[in-house]
Design a protein around this nucleic acid. Structure first.
Lengths: 216, 216
DNA sequence: GACAAACGCGAGCGGTCGCTCGCATTCTGG
DNA sequence: CCAGAATGCGAGCGACCGCTCGCGTTTGTC
């Protein structure tokens, strides 16, 4: 075993002990990347532009990321990690008797708030140009969300085929996304109006499937 | 006027009399471009790849199109022209007393059929990477569709503020698009099931706003 | 058949982009 | 305090891409 005695690693991976400075640079670069990705999309964003935005040289950028894809991956990882936490809160309390309308409203509010705080998430997840790995993660997240919604729905629809529940969950998520796009395209009062419409859509779609006691 | 006596043109534009061969090449190139745009998106599609797909040299491609953007523009023009015709049929008969469910169903069916026949349309219209001119055309089409839906809605909702009708129209179109994405992602029976869900979504969303007599 | 114009080719030009490399500077453990 | 690692720089390499240009071939017209 001709390797460093202190830490064993996978043959070709160096430990790369980072200093505080390096961690700061990484955060700085990711922030810059988020900004550039937001305005130009992934493919059109050049690594030199990201470095310039961060106020460093291209070489410095490649000190911390092996390639352009890794920047998007890392950014996506951090966003997805944060989003999983948010969705843990948003969908975990599988309403025992809370009215459907409130449950839908609460989930939508959290979903919208997250995406307004992190606009780059939308940009990264909707680009058709994004490389392999990050798409995989997106699919992971998508699958997670769908299964969460499935769980929620199947507790409300006990006597429904699984395939149908899955389909309903996919539809809900799709409408969620479309609504988000509309919401992000507007500001202020108009934005809030679109949020209400999104809640209406989902509520009215789901209500007839469930013994709804709160009809608008 | 030191120009050709037969046809007057805008100072720098040559008439470029095409032969039958040329027209065939153009169709061939547009078909190849549609295929390449479909699989790789606009920006990632190289003009050399389009030429190769069409079985001609890059130089030949530029015999017929001044630049890459013009290919997408021409392709978009032809698609939009065809779509306008389709939508003329889909939304023109502003149902006097036909039930809402049927009206929605018919519109959705036509919309879906068109996009299944022309998958490149979806690719061109959803890419965030598409250059200026084609986006303008997309916005044109979008505005046209919205105003059509608005007209349809305002005849059903006489005493509703215009701003609200507009918003509802935008929501309908957004849900249309999201549903389309789900539909295109599936095949056969599952696809048809998603089409039914899309119709449900729109019908249940709109029904409470209107004196609906056909409740499911 | 002759002439011009449209068509067709493909090597290659100019430019951008992802990324590298050699070297200087700053930090940290012993 | 000093050896070595981590950090920082920026000119520039190789690859690719949109597009051009010169030249040969086909087609339409008189």
């Amino acid at each position: 075993m001709p390797e460093t005695p202190e830490k064993e690693q996978a043959a070709d991976e160096r430990p790369r002990r980072r200093q505080a400075r390096g961690e700061r640079r990484i955060a700085q670069l990711l922030e810059a990347a988020a900004s550039v990705f937001c305005t130009t999309g992934y493919t059109a964003a050049s690594t030199n532009a990201i470095a310039r935005e961060a106020g460093v040289s291209p070489g410095t950028l490649y000190q911390f990321f092996p390639n352009k894809e890794a920047i998007a991956i890392e950014l996506g990882d951090r966003l997805i990690h944060e989003m999983r936490a948010t969705y843990g809160e948003a969908l975990a309390p599988v309403d025992p008797a809370t009215p459907l309308e409130e449950a839908v409203g609460a989930a939508v509010d959290r979903f919208i708030a997250f995406n307004c705080d992190h606009p780059v998430f939308f940009a990264l997840m909707h680009g058709p140009d994004i490389p392999g790995r990050i798409t995989e993660e997106h699919d992971d997240l998508h699958a997670t969300l769908v299964s969460r919604i499935e769980a929620l729905l199947s507790s409300l629809l006990p006597d429904t085929p699984a395939a149908e529940v899955t389909r309903t969950a996919h539809v809900c998520l799709g409408m969620y996304k479309a609504g988000l796009e509309l919401v992000l395209a507007h500001e202020g009062a108009e934005r809030e109006a679109y949020v209400r419409e999104l809640k209406n859509i989902l509520f009215r779609y789901l209500a007839p499937m469930i013994g709804d006691r709160t009809t608008t």
